[in-house]
Structures are given as structure tokens and as C-alpha cells.
Design a protein around this nucleic acid. Structure first.
Lengths: 147, 147
DNA sequence: ATAAATTAGTTTCCATGTCAACTATTTTTA
DNA sequence: TAAAAATAGTTGACATGGAAACTAATTTAT
């Protein structure tokens, strides 16, 4: 078995796992009226302190229209605050409201519980090696595949 | 850093990579009027020779309603054939038409080219270890996380 | 053997994700 | 410095994905 044979297997599994995780995440976040993507945006905002949409578009590799709509929803839900950027009138700064932070903590608690269950039985060193592998793949796919 | 710290990192990366691959796949398959999910169903049918919806629902962990709609679309596109199951009138057997097989081959050619580009520079042994890691994760997530 | 439960697949409704076109602003360049 | 290009974000149209309710057939249990 040579390198080219592993590629489709890896892609297939990544797609399959990604889909399963997305659906599990949606289920897990249902009580908060958030889905996995919305959570990841809220998480990014919380983590950054304050952030502009463009940086999330670049980091998370999402459609800007998509991010825009999620930001709108999160704002309407009262989870984030939008402040005009004094230096660039096209842009604005996003940050979580106290309510948003509170929801985040609740979400993370549930997710942590869920994580504990699936890592159960997997060796710590293997987890580390998986994380490293995924870091590699992430950068490979993120930087785009050149012609 | 202990096991619990790796979990959210791994999940985050898997979700991110899964999303990127899905979007790349959709782009790649655009000329064929298929998206990544539709392709994966068509691929499953081609690979199996003949198959029923239920087995794809179980293997790919997709919503049965979703599979049903994709099957309808593929059939309307003339890529698959639907034959009644003589033993169970609720069910039917799916198989690719010659046209479907032709399209599949074209898709796979493009995907193979794309794969060659991203595996470029990654060691074969590392690819093998990534594939093994993903097999583990796939089974962990597929079998569901028990309470 | 019949009623109840399960299973395979479909349909409907609705939220979501994506694309393209758009506005407004900022940066580049000629 | 004025025109052209690029950038940040929004909007509208449209296909997709998912939950629930549904039909029809099959299996299980009484």
C-alpha cells in the first residue's frame, strides 16, 4: 500500500467524522438554541476578547456571509455586543456580553462532560499524537492545495 | 498537559478540517452537479454493486430522510437505478447506471489529482498512522458516547 | 391469528449554508 | 489626487440538511 492509497481513506474518514461530530455537537447545544457553527463563532469571540468578522473568516475558513448571519443571530440573542470600529467604518468589533459568557461556560461544561466520555480508554500519548497529526492536516488543507 | 486538555483541541480540529474538506469537495464536484454528500452516496452504491438505503444510513451515519432525498436526486439525474426488492416491498435495491459509473470515474480522477497534491511532502508512514488514528476515532464516535 | 411494535422509506416544514450581487469604505496606482 | 481596485460586511435567492410526522410493509408478541 503506497501513499496515494491512504489519501482517499483519510479524506473519507475525516468527512465522515466531521459530519458525525457536527451532528453530535448540534444535539449537545440544542438546549442553548445554538448549533455547532454558531457555538464556534461565539467561542472565538469569547477567546479573542474582541475580534472582527474578517479575522474569524480567515481563521475558521468560513464564508463571510455565513459569519455575518451568525453574528447577527448571536447579537439578536443578546450573546454578543457589536461596537463600531473608529478606524475603519466598514468594520466593527465583536465581544461577548455577560450573558454570552455565561452561556459559553454552560456549553463548555456540557462539552467537557461529553469529551470525558469519548476519551475514556484512549491512551494519553495517542491523543497527543492525534492532535499533532490533525494540526498538520489542518495547515495542509487550510493553505489550500496548489495546482 | 493531560488527556482532557487534548479532547477539545482534537474535536475543534476535526470539525474545522471536516468543514474545509466538505467545501473543497463541493467545489471539486461542482462540474458534475454533485456535492460531497451526494458523491459519497453514489460512491457507496458503486462500491457495493447493489445496496439498500438502510445500510448506507447505518454505515455513513446519515439521516434516512437525507439519504432518501439524495437517492431521489441521483435517480432523477440518471446516475442510479432503483429496483424493487422482491422480498421486502418497503425497500428497493440501488445500483449505478452506466452513466453513473462514468461520472464516478471522472469524479475519482479529479479527486485523485487533488489528493496527490495534498499528500505531497507528507511521509508515507505518517499517512498510515493518521489513517489508523482516524479509524479509531471513527469507531469511537460512531458507536456513540454512552452516558 | 391478530394486535402491537418495528422497520424502510417518503414527505413536509423550517433553519441553515452558499453564492452572487450589492453598499460603503479604504487602499492602491497611474 | 482622481480613478481603479480591494476590502468589510450585508442582503436576497436558492439548494441543502435535519426533525417530526407520515405511509406501507414486516416482524414480534400475546
Amino acid at each position: 500500500m503506497n501513499s496515494e492509497d491512504f489519501a482517499p481513506v483519510i479524506i473519507g474518514k475525516l468527512l465522515n467524522i466531521g459530519g458525525m461530530l457536527q451532528r453530535s455537537g448540534n444535539q449537545l447545544l440544542l438546549p442553548f438554541n445554538l448549533n455547532q457553527q454558531q457555538f464556534s463563532i461565539l467561542f472565538s469571540i469569547e477567546k479573542a476578547g474582541k475580534v472582527q468578522q474578517k479575522s474569524m473568516v480567515n481563521q475558521l475558513m468560513l464564508e463571510k456571509a455565513h459569519v455575518s448571519k451568525i453574528v447577527k443571530k448571536l447579537s439578536e440573542m443578546g450573546l454578543i455586543e457589536i461596537k463600531a470600529d473608529s478606524e475603519d467604518k466598514r468594520s466593527s468589533w465583536l465581544s461577548t456580553t455577560p450573558e454570552g459568557s455565561k452561556i459559553m461556560k454552560q456549553c463548555q461544561k456540557i462539552i467537557t462532560e461529553w469529551n470525558k466520555r469519548w476519551i475514556n480508554g484512549i491512551d494519553k500519548n495517542q491523543l497527543k499524537s492525534i492532535a499533532d497529526d490533525l494540526t498538520l492536516l489542518q495547515s495542509v488543507f487550510k493553505n489550500g492545495i496548489e495546482k
